[in-house]
Amino acid sequence: MEYKISINQLADFSNATESKKKRILKQQKKPNPFLIPWYQLAKSRIKKVIVTNGDLKPIELGIEELKSRIPKNQRQSIDKQVSIEALRLFKEVRLPQMLKDFSYEIVKKGKIKSIYMNGVEVIISPDVIYRVEINGRKFLGGVKLHVAKGNIFDNKQLRYISTLIYKYLNEVIAQKDEEVLKDLCLSLDVFGQRVISAPNNIQKSLHDINRYCDEIKTLWSVA
């Protein structure tokens, strides 16, 4: 049997009731192929800020563009309203100083977007992967965004995400001359207004994640 879950849904699963866990797995088993992604403009502007040393001009331009949009239905109206709120809140998020001090090169994601944890395929697909050169050494980092007004992640959930980004970059992306830097593996919750990097004690988070993957396999057939 194949088990599969996306990184943000795994974080959500880790702090959910059993009934919600089953709902999450049901969605993962049969994803809606016609589902339209939410808040695309807001996410693209946030990604642009991250790779331009914290320059907030893309945020201001994004807000103005959203304001000028005329929604054609309720979904577009909600998307517009929440996207504007997300961009305004993001302006207050304190990004790590390293993101402001160095110039970054964007790294292509490639075909492999997931890793396996205890027999479960976890889809990582970072929103941004970047490379920075410091004193002649090449370092990699990545960011995963979480934009959900009614579902803010706590620090532990965000640590799980940044831990998985670190593991993914090491296993899939990093070349022999590149080092993955924990401080640059970031999980960013826009509505929670917090950014968490991969922890020093990476093994504890990996142990927790493996335990949740065991639970995913147990609940998979009844979800």
Rank of each mutant, 00 (worst) to 15 (best):
K91D: 06
I161G: 07
L87A: 11
I24R: 10
V107N: 08
R194P: 00
F191K: 11
R159P: 00
V107F: 04
P31C: 09
G141L: 13
V195G: 02
S197R: 04
A86Y: 04
K20C: 03
R131F: 06
I7V: 15
Y104E: 02
E18W: 01
K100P: 00
V180Q: 09
T17H: 02
K67F: 04
K113P: 00
D189H: 03
K108A: 12
Y166V: 00
E133K: 12
Q157R: 14
I115C: 03
L87S: 09
W38I: 07
L169Q: 06
E179T: 15
K26H: 01
Q81H: 12
Y39R: 07
I134F: 02
R23W: 06
Y166M: 02
E215V: 10
I152D: 00
G54H: 09
S44L: 06
N170V: 01
S103A: 06
K43A: 15
V82R: 10
K156V: 11
I78F: 14
S6G: 12
F34D: 07
K111R: 11
I106T: 12
L219V: 08
K57L: 11
K138M: 06
D183W: 02
Q203P: 00
K72Q: 11
L35N: 13
L145R: 08
A198K: 04
T218W: 04
L61T: 09
K72A: 08
I78T: 15
C185Y: 01
A198D: 08
D55Y: 08
N201P: 00
N210V: 01
N8L: 15
A11Q: 07
E215S: 03
A148Y: 10
K138L: 13
K204I: 14
L66A: 10
L184S: 04
K26C: 05
L181H: 05
L140V: 12
E215R: 13
F191V: 07
V107E: 04
R88P: 00
I202S: 03
I5A: 08
P31E: 09
G192R: 06
E64P: 00
N155W: 08
V107C: 05
L89W: 11
F102P: 01
I216M: 05
G110Q: 07
Q97D: 14
F102Q: 00
P126M: 12
T218D: 11
I46A: 06
Q40N: 07
R69W: 14
Y130E: 04
F102G: 02
R194G: 01
N155Q: 14
I59F: 01
E178D: 07
G142I: 03
I196Q: 00
V122H: 01
R23F: 09
S103I: 04
I70E: 14
P33Y: 10
F13Q: 08
D127F: 00
Q193G: 05
E121D: 05
L89D: 14
D12H: 11
N170I: 02
E105L: 02
V120H: 08
E105H: 02
Q81Y: 13
E18V: 13
E105N: 05
G119M: 05
L89V: 06
G141D: 07
I123A: 06
M98G: 09
D154C: 06
Y130Q: 07
E64A: 12
D214N: 15
T163I: 11
N118P: 08
K20D: 14
T17Y: 05
I59K: 12
C213G: 12
S19E: 12
Q203L: 13
Y116K: 15
L140P: 02
K100T: 10
N8D: 09
Q97G: 10
R75W: 09
E121F: 01
N8W: 01
S221F: 15
K26M: 07
N155S: 15
